[in-house]
Amino acid sequence: MLNFNIDFTGEFVAFFILSVCAIIGAVMAINFTKVVHTALSIAFTFVAIAGLYVLLEAEFLAFVQVLLYVGAITILMIFGIMMTKHDSEGQEPSRPLLEALAAIGCICLFGILFYSIRNANFSPQDVFIADENTRLIGMHLFTKYAIPFELISVLLTVAFIGAIALAKREEGAE
């Protein structure tokens, strides 16, 4: 049932380290009380997930993960934090019973998932993996999907201008 024949290759070690970093970053994001620390730990999690994409040979997804999530979303969160007021940040009271029940639930979920994955039979499949997947995605994006790509860029520009207009209106109201 519990067969632990694991080859400790470099890929396994990198996967283990990146997975632990992603989990630690997510747990830190949940537990921090300061919003800036939460945003930075989310960025740490996003970088670890990008590393996992590189291990899966999905370089384009790793690049997009770093560019969009680590760069844009995290900076957007920090700008949102800076533009809002946080004068009355209160500390929530600790709930030891709730925390203990949550820990027990997490351990049970881990056990169920571990048991299910260890007993699953995954059949090997023939999958075509392109040598230059980033080039192929770029070719599809700028030929077959050029119009939706441009529409998304216009939509994002309009949303950005709208956010600036809302921020200016709130600033003038004070």
Rank of each mutant, 00 (worst) to 15 (best):
N3V: 00
N3M: 01
N5F: 02
I6C: 04
T9R: 02
T9P: 07
G10P: 09
G10R: 06
F12Q: 05
A14H: 05
F15S: 14
F16V: 09
F16S: 15
L18P: 09
A22T: 14
A22W: 03
I23Q: 08
G25C: 02
V27R: 09
M28S: 09
A29F: 08
I30W: 13
V36N: 09
V36I: 14
V36A: 08
H37P: 02
L40N: 02
L40K: 01
A43C: 08
V47N: 05
A50S: 15
Y53N: 12
V54T: 04
V54N: 05
L56W: 02
A58M: 05
E59Q: 07
F60K: 02
F60A: 04
F60H: 05
A62P: 13
V64E: 03
V64F: 08
L67Y: 03
L68T: 15
Y69E: 04
Y69N: 14
Y69V: 00
A72W: 03
T74K: 01
I75L: 15
L76V: 09
L76I: 07
M77A: 11
I78H: 03
I78S: 06
H86K: 07
H86V: 03
H86A: 08
D87T: 03
D87A: 06
S88C: 00
E89M: 05
G90S: 12
G90V: 08
R95V: 00
L97A: 14
L101K: 15
A102P: 10
A103T: 10
I104Y: 03
G105W: 05
C108F: 13
I112Q: 08
F114M: 07
R118V: 06
N119Y: 01
A120D: 10
A120R: 13
A120C: 01
P124Y: 00
Q125I: 01
D126W: 01
F128A: 07
I129Q: 15
D131I: 00
R135L: 09
M139G: 04
H140C: 01
H140R: 14
K144F: 00
Y145E: 14
Y145R: 13
P148I: 04
F149W: 07
L151H: 05
L151M: 13
S153L: 12
V158L: 14
A159S: 11
F160E: 10
I161F: 06
I161Q: 04
G162N: 12
G162F: 00
A163C: 13
A173T: 12
